[in-house]
Amino acid sequence: NKFNKELGWATWEIFNLPNLNGVQVKAFIDSLRDDPSQSANLLAEAKKLNDAQA
């Protein structure tokens, strides 16, 4: 379904953000699993944090 596809894509993108540490990645992935409907918002937050830590 739509959420599974978005969840998978967001998970892959978060895993590939180079400036996040393992704890941050795990926290974002756990949040995605808790509420897949928020995948776009969580991915945006992860990208912002990644950019801030560059």
Rank of each mutant, 00 (worst) to 15 (best):
N1A: 04
N1E: 12
N1M: 06
N1F: 04
K2N: 15
K2G: 14
K2S: 12
K2I: 14
K2E: 15
K2M: 13
K2P: 11
F3C: 08
F3R: 01
F3K: 03
F3S: 06
N4E: 14
N4D: 15
N4S: 08
N4I: 11
N4L: 11
N4K: 04
N4Q: 09
K5I: 10
K5G: 13
K5Q: 14
K5N: 15
K5F: 10
K5V: 10
E6H: 07
E6R: 04
E6I: 09
E6P: 06
E6Q: 07
E6M: 05
E6V: 09
L7Y: 12
L7N: 08
L7T: 09
L7R: 02
L7W: 12
L7S: 09
G8C: 13
G8K: 14
G8F: 15
G8M: 15
G8T: 14
G8A: 15
G8Y: 15
G8I: 15
W9F: 11
W9H: 07
W9S: 12
W9M: 11
W9T: 08
W9P: 07
A10H: 09
A10E: 08
A10F: 15
A10Q: 08
A10Y: 14
A10I: 15
A10K: 04
A10G: 05
T11G: 08
T11P: 05
T11D: 07
T11I: 15
T11E: 15
T11A: 15
T11Q: 14
W12P: 03
W12Y: 11
W12Q: 14
W12G: 07
E13V: 15
E13G: 03
E13T: 07
E13P: 03
E13W: 11
I14R: 01
I14N: 02
I14D: 03
F15V: 12
F15M: 15
F15E: 11
F15K: 11
F15H: 09
F15G: 04
F15S: 12
F15A: 14
N16P: 01
N16M: 11
N16F: 05
N16L: 12
L17H: 01
L17P: 00
L17K: 01
L17W: 02
L17F: 08
L17Y: 04
P18D: 03
P18E: 09
P18H: 07
P18F: 05
P18Q: 06
N19M: 06
N19D: 03
N19C: 06
N19H: 14
N19I: 01
N19K: 01
L20H: 00
L20R: 00
L20E: 00
L20C: 01
L20D: 00
L20G: 00
L20W: 01
L20F: 00
N21W: 08
N21P: 01
N21H: 08
N21C: 06
N21V: 04
N21T: 15
G22H: 14
G22F: 13
G22L: 13
G22M: 15
G22Q: 14
G22Y: 13
V23W: 14
V23L: 12
V23E: 15
V23N: 14
V23D: 15
V23S: 14
V23R: 10
Q24M: 02
Q24N: 01
Q24Y: 01
Q24R: 00
Q24K: 00
Q24E: 03
V25D: 00
V25P: 00
V25G: 00
K26R: 09
K26V: 07
K26I: 09
K26N: 08
K26D: 06
K26S: 10
K26Y: 06
A27K: 12
A27C: 07
A27M: 13
A27I: 08
A27P: 01
A27H: 15
A27T: 11
A27R: 10
F28Y: 07
F28E: 01
F28S: 00
F28Q: 00
F28C: 02
I29Y: 05
I29Q: 02
I29M: 08
I29T: 04
I29D: 02
I29G: 01
I29P: 00
I29C: 03
I29A: 04
D30F: 04
D30I: 14
D30M: 11
D30G: 06
S31A: 14
S31L: 14
S31Q: 14
S31I: 10
S31P: 00
S31D: 03
S31F: 08
S31K: 15
S31V: 07
L32R: 00
L32S: 01
L32T: 01
L32N: 00
L32H: 01
L32Y: 02
L32Q: 01
L32V: 06
R33M: 15
R33E: 07
R33D: 03
R33P: 00
R33A: 08
R33H: 12
R33W: 14
D34S: 09
D34Y: 09
D35V: 04
D35K: 08
D35L: 05
D35F: 07
D35I: 03
D35H: 09
D35M: 04
P36E: 02
P36F: 07
P36T: 03
P36G: 02
P36A: 04
P36R: 03
P36V: 04
P36H: 02
P36Y: 04
P36L: 04
S37H: 03
S37C: 05
S37V: 04
S37T: 07
S37L: 06
S37W: 04
S37Y: 06
Q38V: 04
Q38C: 06
Q38L: 08
Q38S: 13
Q38R: 12
Q38T: 05
S39M: 15
S39F: 14
S39D: 02
S39E: 07
S39Y: 15
S39V: 15
S39Q: 08
S39R: 07
A40H: 12
A40S: 10
A40G: 08
A40F: 10
A40V: 10
A40W: 10
A40M: 14
N41P: 06
N41F: 13
N41D: 05
N41I: 09
L42N: 01
L42H: 02
L42D: 00
L42Y: 06
L42R: 04
L43Y: 07
L43F: 07
L43D: 01
L43K: 01
A44H: 11
A44K: 11
A44T: 08
A44P: 01
A44E: 15
A44V: 10
A44L: 11
A44Y: 10
A44W: 08
E45F: 08
E45C: 07
E45W: 08
E45D: 13
E45Y: 11
E45P: 00
E45A: 07
E45V: 03
E45M: 12
E45G: 01
E45L: 06
A46H: 01
A46S: 01
A46R: 00
K47N: 05
K47V: 06
K47Y: 10
K47L: 10
K47D: 02
K47I: 11
K47P: 01
K47Q: 11
K47R: 14
K47E: 03
K47H: 05
K48R: 14
K48D: 06
K48H: 08
K48S: 09
K48V: 11
K48G: 06
L49E: 02
L49M: 09
L49H: 02
L49K: 03
L49Q: 05
L49I: 11
L49T: 03
L49G: 00
N50G: 01
N50W: 02
N50S: 10
D51V: 09
D51K: 09
D51P: 00
D51C: 06
D51N: 08
D51E: 13
D51F: 08
D51R: 10
D51M: 13
A52C: 08
A52M: 15
A52T: 09
A52Q: 12
A52K: 11
A52I: 11
Q53V: 06
Q53A: 04
Q53M: 14
Q53R: 04
A54F: 08
A54C: 06
A54S: 11
A54N: 11
A54Q: 11
A54H: 09
A54I: 07
A54D: 07
